[in-house]
Amino acid sequence: MALPASSFPTLLFFLFLISHPRCEAAESFSHYCSYNRPTTPAISKSIAKVLSALVSKNPPKRLNTVSFGGGKSKVFGLAQCHRDINATECKSCIEDATAQLPHLCPGQADAGAWFDHCFVAYDHERVPEQHGTGF
């Protein structure tokens, strides 16, 4: 069954919309994982809490550090946005980064990732460094 000629422009427009989404998630252009420091269930819980806290703190500050847990399960986190982006872009980048980072370094207690507009990291021994982000 052939489509009527009048349906062709509508079909092209629909195909264009599918192939060009309006919003795209931030993608990591570089990341690091410390493969010699695996997580434990307690550290994994602390990582999840730290990442959640980083999302809730951005904005207003462009640089935030948080920690969660105690003793051997304590985890430190850092989120930093590039100076030249607005608060909405900052929050969006931090949300995307905190969602992706555990998947970039599964099961690791020390990880960080650079995105176009932000840097996010967590570490179970110390506050993560910016690692030359230039932000």
Results as ranks from 00 to 15, higher is better:
Ala113Glu: 01
Lys45Pro: 04
Gln130Asp: 14
Lys57Glu: 15
Leu15Gly: 13
Ser92Arg: 08
Leu101Phe: 00
Ala5Cys: 11
Ser19Tyr: 11
Asp110Asn: 10
Phe76Ile: 06
His31Gln: 07
Glu129Phe: 09
Pro60Ser: 13
Ile47His: 00
Pro9Met: 03
Asn64Glu: 12
Glu89Ala: 10
His82Ile: 14
Gly69Met: 04
Cys23Thr: 15
Ala121Glu: 02
His117Gly: 07
Trp114Ala: 09
Gln130Val: 12
Ile43Trp: 00
Pro38Met: 07
Val127Tyr: 09
Phe68Leu: 11
Ile94Phe: 05
Pro128Lys: 01
Lys61Asp: 15
Phe115Cys: 06
Ala121Cys: 05
Asn86Arg: 06
Phe115Arg: 01
Lys91Val: 10
Asn36Glu: 13
Asn58Trp: 04
Glu95Arg: 06
Ser67Asn: 09
Val127Thr: 14
Gln108Arg: 03
Ala48Ile: 04
Lys74Gly: 08
Ser46Met: 04
Gln108Tyr: 01
Ile85Cys: 05
Val75Asp: 07
Ala48Ser: 12
His103Met: 08
Leu12Asn: 09
Ala97Ser: 06
Ala113Cys: 04
His20Gln: 13
Phe29Arg: 03
Leu101Arg: 00
Ala5Ile: 08
Lys74Trp: 03
Arg37Trp: 10
Phe14Tyr: 14
Ala97Asn: 01
Leu51Cys: 02
Ser19Trp: 10
Ala121Pro: 00
Ser7Asp: 15
Val127Arg: 09
Gly112Ser: 05
Val55Cys: 05
Ile43Cys: 01
Glu24Lys: 06
Pro60Tyr: 08
Asp116Gln: 11
Asp96Met: 01
Phe76Thr: 02
Gln100Ile: 07
Leu3Phe: 13
Ser92Cys: 12
Ala53Trp: 03
Val75Ser: 04
Ser44Glu: 10
Gly107Trp: 00
Ser67Cys: 10
Asn58Phe: 07
Gly77His: 01
Arg37Gly: 07
Lys49Val: 14
Phe119Trp: 03
Leu63Lys: 09
Leu11Pro: 05
Cys23Ser: 15
Pro59Gly: 08
Ala99Cys: 05
Met1Glu: 15
His117Leu: 09
Pro21Asp: 12
Phe8Val: 11
Thr65Tyr: 04
Ala2Met: 09
Thr10Glu: 13
Pro60Asp: 13
Asn64Pro: 05
Tyr122Cys: 04
Tyr32Met: 09
Ser44His: 02
Thr133Val: 12
Pro4Thr: 12
Val75Leu: 04
Phe76Cys: 04
Gln108Phe: 02
Leu63Phe: 14
Tyr122Gly: 02
Ala2Trp: 06
Ser67Met: 05
Ser92Gly: 14
Met1Ala: 15
Asp123Ile: 03
Ile85Gln: 02
Phe16Leu: 11
Thr98Ala: 01
Leu3Asn: 13
Gly77Phe: 00
Asp110Gly: 07
His131Arg: 13
Ser30Trp: 04
Thr98Ile: 03
Met1His: 13
Ser73Gln: 06
Asp116Ile: 12
Glu89Arg: 04
Thr65His: 07
Lys91Arg: 12
Val127Asp: 14
Ser28Gln: 03
Ser6Val: 09
Gly69Val: 03
Asn36Phe: 05
Ser92Asp: 14
Leu78Asn: 01
Cys81Ile: 10
Ala5Gly: 11
Pro38Cys: 07
Val55His: 02
Trp114Asp: 10
Ala42Asp: 11
Gly107Leu: 01
Thr98Asp: 04
Gly134Asp: 11
Glu89Gly: 07
Glu27Phe: 06
Pro59Asn: 11
